[in-house]
Design a protein around this nucleic acid. Sequence first.
RNA 1: GGGGACGUCGUCUAGCUGGCCUAGGAUACGAGCUUGUCACGCUCGAGAUCGCGGGUUCGAAUCCCGUCGUCCCCG
Length: 367
Amino acid sequence: MSFKLLHKDKSSKARLGLLNTAHGKVHTPCFVPVGTQATIKALSNDEMKECGTEMIMANAYHLYLRPGEKVLKKAGGLHKFMAWDGPIMTDSGGYQIFSLAVLRKVRKEGVEFKSHIDGSKHFMTPEHIIGFQKILGSDIMMPLDECLHYPVSRNNVEESLKITFDWAKRSKKARATKQMLFGIVQGSTYLDLRKRAVEEIVGLDFDGYAIGGVAVGEPQDLIHEVTEYTASALPQNKARYLMGVGTPLDMLDAISEGADLFDCVVPTRNGRNGQAFTWSGELQLRNAPFKEDFAPVDKKCACYTCRNHTRAYIRHLFNTDEILGLRLVSLHNICFYVKLIETSRKAIKEDRFKKFVKDFKVRYRNR
RNA sequence: GGGGACGUCGUCUAGCUGGCCUAGGAUACGAGCUUGUCACGCUCGAGAUCGCGGGUUCGAAUCCCGUCGUCCCCG
């Protein structure tokens, strides 16, 4: 249970690290696919492993509502339940409080919310969330936090930071020693508030630090201004997790800004909607130009999808609502993301990450 | 040969006691969006002068006549 900083790129702020968890090692930078409901939608564990996925992410809020504490306890934890023997991170549900805002009431003690599934009322405290993540047996737990949408007034951010900090303290107290617990830095786009949040959270000494409240509606340049600023303020010897980011370009930029871990629904969600990521840009595979395109999704990709199938076939699968279509593109996208980060690690090791990103952007023109 | 029903975007159709229809929807088609997943989703676009011709009327997809086509029943 530790993080080792192995190398710092000489051409950028990119870092190479090794995260040791109870269920294995994670090489950073690392992309962590999102499996909210204890499954990476449409993909099997074997497929994830074949892509080279080292760690996956699940969501405490969702699993708390379904299947619930009792089932997960009886199952012997999340690893056994979903038959994934590698590292698992779990998000607390802080983001859900934000994204399901209509239903929530944030109080100092915790959050009151209505289940989006059956409307039942629940009250969750930071202690509950940690307790539940203990039952899950997550390798990396996240504390309950409040994630605000952009834009938000300075006053609201200051008020919110107090709650997030208080919850962080309480989460720390309630933590389990065998699992890692990260602290989350909020502060929206107010850099001085970000700085204050970093000082407070780092003062509590967590196993790693997350940059939250980023890519929640703000313009591109702000995403990176906040990320770079916050990452630079965090300690060198701890992993930095940029929550919810992102697109290939956002991730690469964030790596140059010093972030180590990323989770994002984009490769899977967009994959289910027919968008493929490739070394030469993004493809809307449902679009007409692919009707008779018998090339693989990406010539440079060695994934199952690209080894066996054509763009024309995948477009056909989407047009006929066949399940295999979503599976093939999700699989390709995950493989692409993992490979992109693997290649990034190599470039960092060789101190040429800045050039690597520059070259990648030239080829990745569609955006 | 006689009687009846029906004919509206590519497809399935709403409307048919005439003006609110410069014809609505669904689907197919075309494009865009998607950043700690309420999501195989969302948004937008193009697409029919209402089988055809004539008539009544200020005004017809809607009423009348003819005609063509499809289907059904009787002979």
